[in-house]
Design a protein around this nucleic acid. Structure first.
Ligand SMILES: [Zn+2]
Ligand SMILES: [Zn+2]
Length: 628
DNA sequence: TGCAACGTTACT
DNA sequence: AGTAACGTTGCA
């Protein structure tokens, strides 16, 4: 039986489920028990106020049944400990005696209503999204997953992420691997290690969508050193990892071949492939029970694999399947070549979650507890039964031992009653922020990410140089935004100057200078308002190739100094090698080509020039329009 | 330091 | 009263 309730949180049963009303403020740190405090603020040492109770919100708390296999379960009678897989995240921290001034319980009277603790009959594990949260009031809003049963929640709170920071979702580092089944986190006791990963390309449209989400993110945690240890990211971060990535795939990376969602390790005996044991990439809010135990997954990219922009297609059709002839050569574009990883903005959480110190600080120890997925899903199967070589590390720790890495206690919104609050980082609160940070930076020159560019343009950091300010055509100069950069880019080895602009959301404009690709004709812009079609553009340079038609000469000179935009959609396919293909879809009107054309050399890289030309020739909507 | 043991508290 | 399990203690 679980510890019951005191005054707070209040459990209210309604037709819609159980609602929990908690005091708004954390009354005690997650790591300290409640002790009476003298009026003067001093502690009455030794006077224990009350023992902490499980938060009921974290992942482990969602697990309603004992695994009966873990160490504690097996020896329950003697050890009298809760199941390893059910051990509340907040209780994993060792009580911090006398370390904190006792606050007045009613100091903050605000109360938050937690979402109903809906229990899915068929599952022992309640979907995190279904359970509530709470005090994450100023935190990020949990992404709403329409595909996840959503409990009826108070409107006001429904859009807040149900899980306070660290709510059992100590984030783990999403490890991206090329193929193969996704694995479960390693069994407790494994040595945590990080696997460098690369980031997938981000469709411009996606960038826009997510970048727009309001919120702020700890910049430092995202932009630079990914080794940074951060406080446990709010669930939303994980959500971001998982959800966005999968969404990207499903919504924008049509060409990707590895789309399976990671399966979540199941605590009750289902073991994940050992080789991927350190990978945990569960879908947001999906109850463990609803996942495929060992499905293939691939949400990951192998380290070292630099995805490359491999193909470019112009297609006005909605049917994205009609990818055209492409410039197939792999170039390094779009993805960071170093260990940057948009999905690695979160600290690597050791097999047992690495909770930042501070909040969970020194007292937060629990080296051998299984780690949970972002959604608090139970980790992999219980470790080998009792006492089988679980060699925890760390000092006076509990079996769930983490490496405390929290840095601050200030983030205390979200404390479960009696004490430990899941750390909630205000700075990390919003996934939007993450998105913004990530995407914004991807498109910005402030971060060492190669700028993704259509047309298989490789824009390596080394070639980049800052450009002057320039607003995009929409006039937006938002934060992520309107950044403009002048770079020497290359399209399949053809270097050229280019101006790359992005409004940070959904506009990516690339203006290719005249010094590179243009080879033969450098005549002045021809006046007139003619429309240029790809045919025209390609013709001149392709005439020596097997161009299907021969109206080439016609436009030999109209390419020069023309600034064109493309009608329709530009598809840029990037072959990630074993990881599949990423396709970037960019509205043609956001792509500008200036003073450039596909010449022999460039065309020579097309894997299927004939198809490309044919498409261009037949597709009436694919055309270059003179911009000026 | 790691962990088993168990007193004690919280709750049903 | 019974159950669950938190927190402390003490041993290796
Ligand atoms: Zn167990
Ligand atoms: Zn909990």
């Amino acid at each position: 039986m679980e510890d019951g309730n005191g005054q707070f949180p209040l459990h209210i049963q309604t037709g819609d489920g159980e609602f929990i009303v908690k005091e708004e403020e954390d009354l005690s740190s997650p790591t300290s028990p409640d002790y009476y405090t003298s009026p003067d603020g001093s502690f009455d040492r030794g006077v224990r106020l009350k023992r902490r109770r499980r938060c009921g919100q974290c992942g482990p708390c969602q697990v309603k049944e004992n695994c009966n296999k873990c160490h504690f379960c097996v020896r329950r009678d003697v050890l009298k400990q809760t199941c390893m897989y059910r051990k509340c995240v907040y209780l994993r921290s060792k009580p911090k005696p006398y370390s904190r001034p006792k606050e007045t319980p009613l100091a903050s009277s605000a109360a938050s209503v937690l979402s109903p603790n809906s229990q899915e009959g068929h599952s022992n594990i309640t979907s995190p999204t279904a359970s509530g949260p709470s005090r994450f009031l100023d935190g990020p809003s949990p992404p709403n997953r329409s595909d996840v049963a959503k409990p009826i929640m108070p409107p006001k709170l429904s859009d807040h992420f149900p899980y306070p920071h660290g709510q059992g979702f100590p984030s783990f580092e999403p490890i991206i691997r090329p193929q193969g089944p996704c694995s479960a986190p390693p069994a407790p006791g494994h040595t945590p290690h990080r696997i460098p990963t690369t980031s997938p390309a981000i469709p411009a449209s996606v960038i826009g969508q997510h970048a727009m989400v309001p919120g702020l993110v700890d910049q430092s945690s995202l932009s630079h050193n990914h080794q940074i240890v951060m406080p446990p990211p709010p669930p939303t971060l994980n959500d971001f990892n998982e959800r966005t990535f999968s969404e990207f795939r499903s919504q924008h990376m049509l060409g990707m071949s590895h789309n399976q969602v990671h399966s979540t390790p199941h605590p009750f005996g289902i073991k994940d492939p050992p080789e991927l044991s350190d990978v945990h990439f569960p879908p947001y809010g999906r109850p463990d029970s609803q996942r495929t135990p060992t499905g293939p997954s691939s949400c990951v990219y192998p380290h070292g694999i630099a995805p490359s922009m491999a193909a470019v297609g112009f297609n006005s059709s909605v049917d994205s399947s009609s990818v055209l002839g492409s410039l197939d050569r792999q170039t390094r574009a779009f993805f960071p070549t170093h260990n940057t990883d948009m999905f690695r903005h979160f600290p690597p959480l050791p097999p047992g979650y690495a909770y930042p110190s501070g909040r969970y600080g020194q007292n937060f120890t629990s080296p051998h507890y299984p780690r949970f997925g972002s959604m608090g899903m139970p980790p992999p199967p219980p470790p080998p039964p009792p006492n089988l070589g679980l060699k925890p590390q760390g000092g006076h720790t509990q079996p769930w031992g983490f490496t405390p890495t929290y840095s601050s206690c200030e983030q205390s919104n979200g404390c479960p009653k009696n004490g430990c609050c899941p750390p909630v980082s205000k700075n990390l609160g919003s996934e939007a922020q993450v998105m913004q940070e990530i995407y914004g930076n991807v498109l910005n020159s402030r971060v060492p990410y190669p700028i993704p560019s259509p047309i298989g343009i490789d824009c390596s950091p080394s070639q980049r140089r800052p450009g002057s300010a320039m607003s995009d055509d929409s006039g937006r100069m938002s934060m992520a935004s309107s950044d403009f950069e002048s770079d020497v880019i290359s399209i399949d080895d053809c270097q050229m100057n280019a101006l790359i602009r992005s409004d940070g959301s959904n506009s990516l404009q690339i203006e290719i200078g005249s010094s590179g690709i243009r080879t033969k004709h450098d005549s002045p812009v021809r006046k007139g308002k003619s429309k240029f079609t790809m045919d025209s553009i390609l013709a001149p340079s392709l005439q020596n190739l097997t161009s299907p038609h021969d109206e080439c000469e016609i436009v030999e000179d109209i390419m020069v100094n023309r600034k064109c935009t493309i009608n329709g959609t530009v598809y840029v396919k990037q072959d990630l090698g074993d990881s599949g293909v990423v396709q970037l879809e960019i509205p043609g009107n956001k792509v500008t080509l200036e003073d450039s054309y596909l010449d022999d050399k460039l065309a020579g890289y097309s894997s299927n020039l004939g198809e490309l030309l044919e498409f261009i020739r037949k597709e009436p909507q694919i055309e270059f329009l003179r911009n000026n």
